[in-house]
Amino acid sequence: MSPSLLIASLWVLAASIVALLPMRRQYIPGVTLLILAPAVIGFIGYQHGWLVALGGVLALGSMFRRPLRYGIARLRGQNPEVPK
């Protein structure tokens, strides 16, 4: 098993476990995964090429679309509603 496949598998497993948590408990582990994602995608891209890395970026954007929208709204100075 290649190291990049192992790292990506662990990241996906951790993201799946975080997704099972109630929304109010997802923030800290979710932000941690979001911060680690570029490093994981960069390593995968280094090992397998830019097309695979592009697929990883698209998958990341799809998986974290709501937190990314929230973060962009906060950066714009808006006060978006947080789900309970």
Rank of each mutant, 00 (worst) to 15 (best):
M1L: 11
S2P: 13
S2K: 04
P3T: 11
S4C: 11
S4G: 06
L6D: 14
I7H: 08
I7Q: 11
I7M: 12
A8E: 12
A8C: 06
A8W: 10
V12C: 11
L13V: 12
A14S: 12
A14M: 06
A15G: 03
A15W: 01
S16T: 14
S16G: 15
S16P: 02
S16L: 15
I17V: 15
A19D: 08
A19N: 01
L20F: 05
L20G: 09
L21A: 07
L21S: 05
L21K: 04
P22S: 06
P22L: 01
M23D: 07
R24D: 10
R24Q: 13
R25I: 05
Q26N: 05
Q26R: 15
I28G: 00
I28F: 15
I28H: 08
I28R: 12
P29F: 00
G30M: 01
G30K: 05
V31S: 04
V31E: 10
L33C: 01
L34F: 15
L34G: 05
L34D: 06
I35E: 04
L36C: 15
A37P: 09
A37I: 12
P38N: 02
P38L: 05
P38K: 05
P38Q: 04
A39P: 03
I41L: 14
I41Y: 04
G42A: 05
I44S: 06
I44E: 08
I44W: 13
I44F: 09
G45H: 03
G45N: 08
G45L: 03
Y46L: 14
Q47C: 10
Q47F: 15
Q47M: 13
Q47Y: 14
Q47A: 13
H48F: 14
H48P: 00
H48Q: 12
G49W: 10
G49A: 08
W50N: 05
W50S: 08
W50L: 11
L51N: 06
L51W: 10
V52P: 02
V52N: 04
A53W: 02
A53G: 05
L54N: 06
L54H: 05
L54S: 13
G55W: 02
G56Y: 02
V57E: 04
V57I: 15
L58Q: 04
A59K: 09
L60R: 07
L60W: 15
L60D: 07
G61N: 07
S62K: 15
M63C: 08
M63H: 11
F64G: 09
F64A: 14
F64E: 06
R65M: 12
R66L: 13
R66C: 03
P67D: 10
L68R: 03
L68W: 03
L68K: 06
G71M: 12
G71H: 06
G71I: 08
G71K: 01
G71D: 01
G71L: 13
I72M: 09
I72C: 02
I72R: 07
R74M: 08
R74G: 01
R74F: 03
R74L: 15
L75W: 07
L75M: 11
L75I: 06
L75T: 02
R76K: 14
R76S: 14
G77V: 00
G77I: 00
G77P: 02
G77D: 00
Q78P: 01
Q78R: 15
Q78K: 13
N79R: 14
P80Q: 00
P80S: 01
E81D: 11
E81N: 09
V82H: 08
P83A: 06
P83Y: 03
K84P: 08
K84A: 07
